[in-house]
Computed example of a mutant assay.
Amino acid sequence: MQFERPSKIQEISLPMILTPPYKNLIAQAHNGSGKTTCFVLGMLSRIDPKLAAPQALCICPTRELAIQNMEVLLKMGKFTGITSELGIPADSANYIPISKRPPVTAQVVIGTPGTINKWVTARKLGMSYMKILVFDEADHMLAESGFQDDSIRIMKAIVKASANCQVLLFSATFGENVKAFVTKIVQDLFVQDYNQMFVKKEELSLDSVKQYKVQCPDELSKIMVIKDRILELGQKVGQTIIFVRTRNSASMLHKSLVDYGYEVTTIQGALRQEDRDKIIKEFKDGLTQILISTDLLARGFDQSQVNLVVNYDLPVRHESPTEPDHEVYLHRIGRAGRFGRKGAIFNLLCSDRDNMLMSKIENHFNHQVAEIPSWNSEEDFENALKIAGLL
């Protein structure tokens, strides 16, 4: 898998994860820094290959991330003989009523909280032999606006059946409220001692990725910037992900770019499961170069060929749309520049509200984002990509 040396998170956390007495761990690390390797190695190291029962469980917020983590597990565990199963909503062709499915005997289970909870409730996924529980994107899994209820139910089921199970909580972001809640939950439910690693928010902004803001006079000019500047130049440097706030924006932008002759694919939560899987596979295989996405893919999606990220809309908090979602912003920009590679981010601003949101993001991370002098100057965009080390 071409590992030469461990990243900082791997160097610090792997001894904590792999060394008895197997303490719980709450760990924060930069996007693209190798967190998945840490917990996959942790899971593989604890399995008794002779025991045909679930011994490691990894919970992820989306099916795409669960599938991606499973791919890493299969690569790293290729010669171990360890068995694994995905616990995600089945597509229509493969659906089996839960009452008819056999009990899970796979040694590692990776899935989404809703499906895992159904399996646990129906007594199809036993917890008696569980040695290690991983929450990937743990801040989202335990936030009130995320999957808190399902996640806590799963934790309680494990504590009841296997009190000494090791718990690993990984994420690139932990807001203060979630950090306090996560720490409390780990202390209250899993009484044993635990380790924690957090990163100061000022240090989270990715140095290998160059961020820019582009002042656009109106909505149409945002589309023109993408079409005539970013994608024209972007074809020379790798793949591009364009983030939008809503499904409607995704459909509108998709139609506009297709009308201009670009081959783009769009992914959002309303698609059928099998369509989502096909779109991701095509993008990962390099068959498509441009992907429009809602925040479904903001977290954890790992594709090393992505060098450009465009924020067509800046991310906002659902409960208060005048406030930016700092964590989602950080996750979005983390799709470029994976594992220290070069990348560029273009934030398209076209209203006072956009500028206010951008200003709040800059203040939060204590990081001034450079401005492209003119939205319709090819030279300015070329210079931006040169500064980012992409041209």
Rank of each mutant, 00 (worst) to 15 (best):
M1R: 09
Q2I: 14
R5D: 11
R5A: 11
Q10Y: 03
L14A: 05
L14E: 01
T19W: 00
N24A: 02
Q28M: 14
A29E: 01
K35Y: 05
T36Y: 00
C38K: 04
F39G: 03
V40L: 14
I47S: 01
L51V: 11
A52K: 13
P54G: 04
A56R: 06
I59R: 09
I59D: 02
C60Q: 08
P61M: 02
I67M: 11
M70H: 07
E71D: 09
T80G: 13
G81V: 07
G81D: 04
G87Q: 03
D91F: 06
N94L: 08
I96R: 03
P97M: 06
R101C: 09
P102Q: 06
V104R: 06
I110D: 01
T112L: 10
I116W: 00
A122R: 09
K124S: 03
K124C: 12
L125N: 01
M127A: 10
S128F: 07
S128P: 01
Y129N: 08
M130Q: 06
K131A: 05
F135C: 05
L142D: 00
L142K: 01
A143W: 04
F147Y: 07
A157L: 13
A163I: 02
C165F: 04
S171N: 10
S171K: 12
G175H: 15
E176M: 12
K179G: 01
I185L: 13
D188M: 09
V191S: 11
D193A: 06
Q196S: 14
K210I: 05
C216I: 03
C216F: 12
E219Y: 02
E219D: 10
I226C: 11
R229D: 01
G234K: 08
V244H: 03
T246L: 14
M252H: 11
M252T: 05
M252C: 04
L253A: 10
L253N: 05
K255F: 07
Y262V: 06
E263V: 13
I267R: 05
A270G: 08
E274Q: 14
E274G: 04
D277A: 15
K278G: 07
K278P: 07
I279N: 00
K284H: 11
D285P: 01
L291G: 08
R299T: 06
S304N: 11
L308H: 00
V310N: 12
D313C: 03
V328L: 15
Y329S: 04
Y329D: 02
L330Y: 09
R335G: 08
R341Q: 15
K342E: 07
L348V: 04
C350G: 00
S351L: 10
I361L: 14
E362R: 00
N363Q: 12
H364S: 09
N366A: 04
Q368F: 03
N376Q: 13
N376G: 09
S377I: 12
E378K: 13
E382G: 02
I387H: 07
I387R: 15
G389S: 13
L390E: 09
L390F: 10
L391P: 01
L391M: 07
